[in-house]
Amino acid sequence: MAKFGKSIIFVLGLLLIIAIITNTAIGSTNISPLITAKILLARYFFIEPTWTSSQEVIITNIRLPRVLLGGFVGAALSTAGCAMQGLLKNPMADPYIIGMSSGAALGASIAFMLLLPVQVTSFVMAVITIFIVYNISIIGGKVPIDTLLLAGIAVGSFLASITSLIIFLAQSPHQIIFWLMGGLWTANWDKVKITAILVTIGIVMLYRYSWKLNVMLLGEEEAQYLGVNVEHVKQYVLVFSALITAAAVSVSGIIGFVGLIIPHIMRILVGPDHRILFPASTLAGAIFLILTDTFARTIMDSVELPVGVVTAMFGAPFFIYLLRKRRDNLYA
């Protein structure tokens, strides 16, 4: 199993590199993958230029940051979803489950209304939301999972209703509505850098708890018998899942489905061991979002679709297919 797992990680890693190069090549101006690869490599090595400077600008300043941002956002959502599913032992779990997306959405709406910086405001609101939900859920020093879920749904609905109110009253609501649909069209190098740092830190921190999450899958009581400080693990995993989700959402809006289905598919492929499941989800999430985003920006000549629309449009039927194919124990 471990061997098989490692080769899957290797293959996914390779696919990710290929996805980055080919998807950077695809766009309204045709640039071949070979030229693209050369332009990318020329950033680090000396290569005799065989391309025009406008090609170089398109690749390095427009397409590459977009592809990379998609990669980091996909990686973050998928890893956070994987962590939440493991922690909550719930197949419905995704990174947004305890109200974070609603918090981020409200933050973005407020930012559009008051002309504040959208990324910062939505990030902060997402983090505040998790903080509130977590603290509501504490009962006698412990955080029961059911309470956490219900509190998340309650707080989420409350915040969503305020967002709806803002949209209803707004002068030009379509900015907010577009943001809610999720898209990567505002990608630039600054966003890539911030997202890369936050997401990498969060993902590495989550990987450190892979083993503990495995033990937690046996149930909280068994995990305690095996020496896991259950409440600490919950807090830790929530904090870092929240961090990377907020980092992703604040630059991309609400992109659904990546964080739900990618970890599921990977669990079917590599099993429940988080030491392999985590990296597999991270890589597959990145690949998936890069591909869907390319589709979203190139399928129609005149306009770009919001990638959030595409992920669900493709993801949902595929997921239903998987569910039908394999009805026995995804969870219980």
């Binding site: 495995n214 095996l226 429940p272 124990n329």
Partner: peptide, 19 residues
């Protein structure tokens, strides 16, 4: 005891080393 996740027997026994 009920375990619904597809760990191998070896994985489960190794979890005894968790502490």
């Amino acid at each position: 005891v009920s375990i619904n996740f597809e760990f191998t027997v070896k994985d489960i026994v190794l979890m005894g080393r968790n502490p």
